[in-house]
Design a protein around this nucleic acid. Structure first.
Lengths: 220, 220
DNA sequence: TATAAAAGTTAGACTTACCTAACAAATGTT
DNA sequence: AACATTTGTTAGGTAAGTCTAACTTTTATA
């Protein structure tokens, strides 16, 4: 059985492997920063996780989850995203409030609980941020998605996920009344600064920055 | 903010105060036994809780929750019982499975979560074992209840709570198809050993021990 | 009431997860 | 290729919560 802390390290490693698309390894400093601890602390824990054969790790080398470590990390991610869905769908939590509480709930140990929760929620495939919820067997539903900034003028799309899950961004989206499923039309692209003018649902035109357009996943 | 462990000590103290009806204080050994730690460990923690003014405690003296300690303990109990209700009502957990998971869930920190959960469950007053769920303000719904063994021959009653929440007892009740709300008629009392013959719902007569009759709360 | 038993405390040690400070290895830059 | 910077490790220390073993106080009983 893993401790709360060990679980957090595994999850961080999995997240970093998603983030650094092509190279699934992470560095000690990167890990530490992600978890809010000092690099020395991360080194200690990595040695421990190596002992338990959850990570492949050598002094000064790259850090990589083992198959077993990856499975456990996916299970934690599964719990996290199912709980986020529960909070959002059943308890009326807002987009930006779910994460913090799910961070705690994901550590509850009970296989039955996870499976029953999934059933209760109707086997959702994506969480409130549009991220895929791993199935009990570890498979992840996939979804064709592109960044809003990749669209050409005149194209129409639908919001499917957020790339940035920070509170400020999520609250901004809420203010703009953008949620998963919202239709968006690209009216104009400004080459100068990468910003664009878009139409959200049936609302009037609105300008959004390049940073914004790079943070929202959509499908055509 | 209290640690997971501190919360468990407060909860144990509250539970013991309910158990020892007339005298709401507890002893160090009693505490330790209840929490599955050694008395020395309990002593250490009690000193710490005293520092935080959550318990009144003097060397070799009786242990008592302060007003503040009691409030916090009640809040934990509230969470525990709401989660038990959630597991039982929404996720189809059985009577005897809810406790273990609720032990973990009760430590999740989020005022919003508790209140939303309560609302989601329809403001239940009693948990799956028939125990009262404290309200947000700390008030506990009360319920007139007596032990099955207090009834006279011929009397009719309805199950409202269990006194013993051990797995063996709860599973026995399940086997007998007894749950909260089940009607019971006392057919005969055997003075010799305190056992009694009862009719459960519309089923045929059945003998139950004195121990059994002392573990079930009913109302006339 | 003297003494044995029970209840409770103290001291010292262990583990986990964290830290700081000093050091070592790897990488990047001229 | 030499050196500076970045990255990562080691050593030694802290706090929380636990333990055992030895001790003290309270209580029960002969």
């Amino acid at each position: 059985m893993l401790s709360y802390t060990e679980e957090n390290y595994l999850k961080a490693l999995l997240k970093l492997s998603f983030q650094n698309e092509d190279k699934p390894e992470a560095g000690t400093n990167e890990m530490a920063a992600h978890l809010g601890v000092k690099p020395a602390t991360a080194t200690d824990m990595l040695k421990k996780l190596k002992e338990k054969e959850l990570v492949n790790y050598k002094k000064y080398g790259k850090i990589l989850l083992t198959e077993s470590g990856k499975q456990q990390a996916i299970e934690i991610l599964r719990k996290h995203r199912l709980w986020e869905t529960f909070l959002y769908k059943k308890l009326d939590f807002s987009w930006d409030e779910v994460h913090e509480v799910a961070e705690q709930l994901e550590h509850i140990q009970s296989a039955k609980l996870v499976d029953k929760l999934e059933e209760f929620l109707g086997f959702p495939e994506f969480d409130p941020h549009g991220d895929p919820i791993p199935k009990a067997n570890g498979e992840m539903p996939t979804l064709e998605k592109i960044l809003l900034c990749e669209l050409r003028e005149g194209e129409i799309c639908e919001v499917v996920a957020v790339k940035d899950t920070s509170t400020v961004f999520l609250q901004y989206l809420e203010k703009l009344q953008i949620t998963i499923g919202t239709p968006i039309k690209v009216l104009e692209r400004i080459d100068f600064d990468g910003s664009m003018s878009i139409q959200i649902s049936e609302e009037e035109a609105r300008n959004v920055s390049m940073k914004f357009a790079e943070s929202l996943f959509v499908k055509r």
